[in-house]
Structure formats: structure tokens, C-alpha cells
């Protein structure tokens, strides 16, 4: 059982990387990755958020959608719970843990409009993982996102001192670098075959 969890974790971080293979979280990936420090804290916050969203999504799916056999409500149920929970958790942290709010809490509202998180919840339902496996899958997805965004941030910090063609400055060169990174991650494909 534990072997399977480790396999799922490594597969989600390296082989099926959420950013470089499934194109998810591209808006924050382009926007926030020009400073290493903010990239790392965003990565951790996203990982933290994905790890708690995964079980919530699993519970909603199994105890509401599957039990009452309402598959068509899947998108609406997931998104209304995620959006409301996010707003609530953010207010709680802002009120009771102001310090934590400064470093991590500011990233919480990001969840509602983050493709990676909604995609992750739908994937764990599609692949019908167990509760534990869903959490490992969510955690792995977050770590994969953090890995991609930190690599990109460190490259872009170097980039400030290189002379990038005028028209490619900013998002253009970032996408090209992301393309090369994706090429490297394609090399990792087939490393692990796991459902």
C-alpha cells in the first residue's frame, strides 16, 4: 500500500507534472515566478491548499454525488464548496493568525481561480482514488507545481542580466523557457506506470 502511495507521489511530481505536462496554473506560473522568494511561498501555500482540498473533494464526491447519484452536479458542487471554504478559511486565518496570514494566508484566495486545483479534484474523482491516495495525489500535485515554479523563478532571476530580444521580454521568453523545461520533463515520461 505504501509502495503504491510513493509511486503515485513520484509520478504526480515528475512524470505527470501539473504545470509542464497538463498546462495548469499557467497564470500564476507566468506572473509570480520572477522572484524566487515569492515563488517558493506561493508553491508552499498551493501545496498546503491542495492537500486540504483533495480530501474535501473526495468527501463531497462520495457522500453527496455518488450516494444520491447526481453526476451532473459535480462541477457546481465542487466549485461552490471550494470558493466558500476558501473565503471562510482566509478570514479565520486573517483574524486569529495575522502572522501566518502575512506569509501564507494571502495565497488562499488564489484557489478559487486556479485551474490546477479544480483539475486535481476532478482527476482524483475520475481515477477514483481512495481518500489517502487522493491526499497523496493532491500533495504531489502541489509539490510538482512548486518544483516547476521554483526552477522557473531561479532561471528568470538570472535572465534579468541577459539581453533578451525586445519583443520577447516578459511572458514571451518565459514561455520559451517553459517549453525547454517541458522538453526535459518529457524525458522523464515512462519512468513510472501508474494509474
Amino acid at each position: 500500500m505504501v509502495k503504491e502511495l510513493i509511486l503515485v507521489f513520484i509520478a504526480t511530481v515528475l512524470v505527470n507534472n501539473f504545470v509542464l505536462k497538463y498546462f495548469l496554473g499557467i497564470c500564476p506560473f507566468l506572473g509570480v515566478s520572477d522572484k524566487l522568494s515569492s515563488a517558493i511561498s506561493m508553491g508552499f501555500a498551493t501545496t498546503f491548499v491542495m492537500t486540504i482540498t483533495a480530501p474535501v473533494a473526495w468527501l463531497i464526491n462520495n457522500y453527496i454525488l455518488v450516494k444520491f447519484n447526481l453526476p451532473f452536479l459535480q462541477y457546481v458542487c465542487f466549485i461552490i464548496v471550494i470558493a466558500s471554504l476558501v473565503q471562510f478559511v482566509e478570514m479565520v486565518i486573517k483574524k486569529f493568525f495575522p502572522l501566518l496570514h502575512q506569509s501564507m494566508g494571502i495565497y488562499l484566495p488564489l484557489i478559487t481561480t486556479n485551474c490546477a486545483i479544480l483539475f486535481m479534484t476532478l482527476q482524483l474523482v475520475l481515477k477514483d482514488y481512495s481518500l489517502i491516495k487522493s491526499m497523496v495525489f493532491g500533495f504531489g500535485a502541489g509539490v510538482g507545481f512548486t518544483l516547476a515554479i521554483t526552477i522557473m523563478a531561479s532561471i528568470r532571476e538570472e535572465l534579468k542580466f541577459q539581453d533578451v530580444p525586445e519583443s520577447l521580454k516578459g511572458p514571451g521568453i518565459t514561455l520559451i523557457i517553459a517549453g525547454i523545461l517541458a522538453l526535459i520533463f518529457v524525458g522523464l515520461g515512462g519512468l513510472i506506470q501508474v494509474k
Binding site: 509542464l20 505536462k21 498546462f23 520577447l168 511572458p171 514571451g172 521568453i173 518565459t174 514561455l175 520559451i176 517553459a178 517549453g179 525547454i180 517541458a182 522538453l183 520533463f185 518529457v186
Partner: peptide, 10 residues
């Protein structure tokens, strides 16, 4: 493949 998408859009 994904690298192609990133490079083309860039």
C-alpha cells in the same frame, strides 16, 4: 506535445 505548445505561443 507540451513543449511545442509553450514554444509556439512564446
Amino acid at each position: 506535445t507540451p513543449p511545442g505548445a509553450f514554444l509556439t505561443l512564446g
